[in-house]
Amino acid sequence: MTDEQIIEMARKAGLHGLVEGGIINEFKAFAELIVKECMYVGRLSQINNGLVDSDIKDHFYGVEE
């Protein structure tokens, strides 16, 4: 993802001031880890004949308060 894409994503999430804070690289790294975790969970789901989409969502948001 480009810096602009990360900033746009952060802006949508309500994370303003990313550039001023100088932490764009950390957010980029954070995004990368999330994407790779998604793909990893997706692979496991596929191996287990699961529903990839649901399994990924459940992995991150499954147990709500």
Binding site: M9, A10, K12, A13, G14, L15, G17, L18, E20, G21, G22, I23, F27, F30, A31, I34, V35, C38, M39, I56, K57, F60, Y61
Partner: peptide, 20 residues
């Protein structure tokens, strides 16, 4: 320098997950 809440961070993560 900068403040955020876990909720904002989760929203950011959610957007990334959705995009993925």
């Amino acid at each position: 320098i900068y403040y955020t809440t876990q909720k904002d961070l989760e929203k950011f993560a959610e957007l990334i997950v959705r995009d993925t």
